[in-house]
Design a protein around this nucleic acid. Sequence first.
DNA 1: TCTGGGGTCCTAGGACCC
DNA 2: TCTGGGGTCCTAGGACCC
Length: 415
Amino acid sequence: MVIVGKVTLFRGTILRTPTDSPVIFVPLNSMSRIIFHIDVNSAFLSWTAVKMMREGAPDIRLIPSVVSGDPSDRRSIITAASIPAKKLGIKTAQPVSMALRTCPSLTIVRGDWEWYKQCSRDFIAICRSYSPILQQFSIDECFIDMSRHCDGEDPVAIATRLKDEIRDKLGFTVNVGIGSNKLLAKMASDFEKPDKVHTLWEQEVPEKMWPLGVRDLLWVGKKTEERLIANGILTIGDLAKLGMGSLTQLVGQKFALQLHENANGRDDSPLETESAEAKSYSAERTFSKDLTDPKDIDRALFHVACIVAHRIRKDHFRASTVSMFIKYKDFTVAQKQCRLPRPTDVTALILNEARRMLDEVWDGITPIRQVGLGVSKLTHESAVQMSLFEDPKLDYYREWDRQYDERKARSKSSR
DNA sequence: TCTGGGGTCCTAGGACCC
DNA sequence: TCTGGGGTCCTAGGACCC
């Protein structure tokens, strides 16, 4: 992965993440690296299909189908779409209601997070058996460094064996992209799908990557694409040949350097084999219709505060910063954050700050579409600092949290 | 047609200290 | 009396990823 702001042009340096967890620096000679990027095809849809077929259902991958949140909620969006659905123009992140207009007979299935995590573990385990130098990039993607694991064999043959093994043992398909760095491997896995192996070596960049539109380059999103196109930069090749001066004017120095390197197929970032600790936690809720009643908003804020606080307690964190936001029906966001005098994991203390900030940020009239709450500046400090100004109800709050966590644990184990 | 949920990182401006 | 520059912390807002 190429992390903006961590462009690693210092070969041979051991990098440390801001949390100071070690990052393994892999290549001895980065020119000879062989990196695979393995990407599950329509992951949530494929995984759901595998589960349904075990229960005797037909294969939903072969028909127009999608995975979404609650399908009865008109605000649900599509999390994953089958290839036949994509051919009809249905896209990930599209509202379900919109997809249904395109295809009234669309099959909609509900996601199952626990099952997805199981599928992910199984898929990662097979990848790891090909190389222990593995970076999990998301629930359905990983990189492996095959530089020392090819033994003179053609990487394409090995990648083909890997993808076939996953398909035959687990029942779902993957794409494998092969390149001399993570960027190229990731770009390659995005070529024709499903169940394919592609290479993108540095010497293939002009032929295979430069003709693609700028948006196909990793880290070029909608806004950057608009800006580039407005300046006549249409393809990755255009971007590669653009001088740093002009590019800096368009996107700023740091990002310009990143884009320039990447468009030329260069990326020295190492595989990060240890998963970094979380830096923030958040939860948000979108209402099925926009709300104006303060009681409803407060109930939602309470709900997300419980979720976030529970999760940091589970991971033994305390947070020093609380943030909250509200989103209006035109999608504009008002947000507020504040620093706590001491790090905490107590739901009530987090909620109280959020409530105070809600009062500052919301006029009490404008309808609200969504509320969210987050915490950051996390520590594992467990020493409780006593303060003269400690909330006298703290013991009560902690007991409330303890019971909440216990209920959560019980409901999880009984599932 | 009407847009979820959960993350990461960057930038810019203001406050404050030395 | 009037002025500097660097460093750090904080907040708000924006862009990107899956």
